[in-house]
Design a protein around this nucleic acid. Structure first.
Lengths: 193, 193
DNA sequence: GCATCCATCCCTACTAGTCGGTAGTCTCAT
DNA sequence: ATGAGACTACCGACTAGTAGGGATGGATGC
């Protein structure tokens, strides 16, 4: 029932990864919730590193799709950036997904298999590229007002995004995410008349 | 040689924790570098949770001391905040300590023993208190210029601090930490004449 | 129509190794 | 002689991963 087994494995691994990180989840955990034997998971994903890399690829694809949708549906670049932050605010608030696995694995970087590390780096690079692209057009069209270079402002926004996730998780309160990110976004908003 | 065994265990656990997080290091790892048997570690620290909690307490004490020293030696509140960021810039650049264990464990929060979670929450709260206190006097004395409330600005700075650490670790480059944090600090600096 | 083949999928049963933690013993300084 | 600190030797549970066997179903050859 409900879709391909490998899809269910990926989904479960994604969920486990989201709240435990790489080292703290096991094939046995997946087996339990997918209702399948441990060995059967190895049939679909021979190694843990491969499985997690696949989860990250899927995660990245979803994020990329989401960003493309924002690009198409929202004209104002500032509003696009705000919408991306709002998306995460909803995730954290709803408790469904409380962290971005790309960022979470970034923290565990030194202990990850090279295969996984590469995917984490890709996560940061697609995020950086999108922010830089969006900030560049936003700055040009005066939809936003930047105080530093596009590259630097992009880094600040990404840092606030991930750092605020961290704080929200640590104190178990979405409000700190909301207030920190709103303040950061207000600072690149053009001055009100 | 070099000091009490329990001190060496703490130091080693601190280092291991810094680059692997909670789940990815073991008593065996400590035993190897401290040149002691695994069982002997249990003599000093009966449980892993207790050991890590002790590491966090020591880490928090060091941070608190550092902040108190800043409070005493630097008069300008803005300069104090900048000095704290500079401290971490030095840590990351020198590769000696590449991450704050308080923040790192914040990411792993849901999979940590309650004993450790409590210490992580304390880390965030002493950091928040110091930032709020420093920003409040900075704002009052016009040493800095805040666009939002003290509480919110403190959250933004903490988020940038931890988020920039995350980016620096993910892409293995201290420059992103430096540029993001400098930009964030410039924004609370008073306008130049 | 029917047998064979092959790949897919999941299973049981296992491996070697690691995990945190315990029991009990030896040594040595106070 | 007593207690601290280190040891050897072990525990049961868990880890990722492997070997090999059934079951299924769809394609092929006759």
């Amino acid at each position: 029932m409900q879709g391909e087994t490998s899809e269910r494995i990926l989904k479960t691994a994604n969920d486990l990864l989201t709240d435990r990180g790489y080292s703290a989840f096991s094939y046995a955990d997946i087996a339990e919730t997918v209702k399948i034997r441990k060995a059967s998971i190895h049939h679909h994903f021979p190694t843990k590193a491969g499985l997690v890399a696949a989860v990250l690829r899927a995660h990245r694809a979803r994020i990329r799709e989401g960003l493309e949708t924002l690009d198409q549906q929202i004209e104002n670049p500032l509003a696009r950036v705000k919408a991306y932050f709002k998306y995460w605010e909803g995730c954290i608030e709803g408790q469904t997904v409380s962290f971005c696995i790309g960022a979470l694995l970034g923290a565990e970087m030194p202990s990850l298999p090279e295969e996984v590390q590469a995917e984490v780096r890709l996560h940061f690079s697609i995020l950086t590229e999108w922010f830089e692209r969006t900030l560049k057009t936003g700055s040009r069209t005066r939809a936003m007002h930047l105080q530093s270079s596009v590259a630097t402002e992009a880094q600040v926004l990404i840092a606030v995004l991930h750092g605020a996730m961290l704080s929200a998780r640590a104190v178990n309160n979405c409000d700190v995410f909301r207030s920190a990110t709103h303040a950061a976004l207000n600072r690149i908003s053009p001055a009100k008349p």
